[in-house]
Amino acid sequence: MITEVFFDVETKKLFSEIDKFDPADLGVSIVSLYRRILDENYIEKEGKLMSFWEADFQKLWPIFQEANRIIGFNSINFDVPALEPYTNFPIKKLPHFDIMAKVKDVFGRRISLDSISKETLGREKSDIGVNAVLYWQTGGKENLKKLQRYCDDDVIITKELYDFVLKNGYLHFKDKWNTQRRVDLDFSYPKEKSQKQIGLF
């Protein structure tokens, strides 16, 4: 069996509110994740969406540490360093898989989650990151519900894009000239590595 974790982080501050461009200084308000188990044919056997506020972050780390692949979008340069101050282990050394980084490696530049989602899945993000910070800073039950919903939605979009590539081998997006582009990608596990991982369970 293979364990995959899709995750997204929302922060307490914007970069304009801190002294340097370091995600570790932003503070994390909430982490949402989807954990799933795949069989040897990479078919999902079970999965669960979960959200964690700061008081429960310690419950995150065993979930991350047991995963064969931790999937995010701009996670290596943003989500992971934002979480680092909350950990007592080298979270950067875990098996991270950053969809934005994979697209950039092929296309040569960063493409937003919203752009890829609209052209590939036909759906937009439910909100924007600035509002997520404002929901946290304003507080209140309804704002925190909106924050959690937004974070959850980004996780689901990330999962759907990942699964789309596994099935179809490409993503669509529009470039700065509003022209639809296609980028071919391979998200499959390296054959020898995946066989070794499956054998461990």
Rank of each mutant, 00 (worst) to 15 (best):
F6S: 01
D8K: 05
E10F: 05
L14C: 02
F15I: 01
D19I: 00
K20F: 09
K20I: 04
A24K: 13
A24V: 01
S29V: 04
I30A: 14
I30H: 08
S32R: 03
S32N: 11
R36I: 07
D39A: 01
K45R: 12
L49K: 10
K59Y: 12
L60S: 07
I71P: 01
I76Y: 11
I76F: 10
N77E: 11
A82F: 06
T87H: 01
N88H: 03
F89R: 00
K93R: 08
L94G: 01
L94T: 00
F97D: 06
D98W: 01
A101Y: 08
S112N: 13
S115I: 04
E119Y: 11
R123I: 15
S126M: 12
S126P: 02
I128S: 14
V130L: 14
V133I: 06
Y135C: 07
W136D: 11
T138C: 12
E142V: 07
K146N: 13
L147V: 11
L147H: 13
Q148F: 04
Q148V: 02
R149T: 10
Y150F: 08
D153F: 14
V155D: 15
V155H: 11
L161D: 03
F164W: 14
V165W: 06
N168W: 06
G169Q: 10
W177S: 13
W177L: 13
Y189S: 07
P190R: 07
E192I: 13
K193L: 15
K193H: 10
Q195L: 14
I198A: 01
L200S: 15
L200T: 08
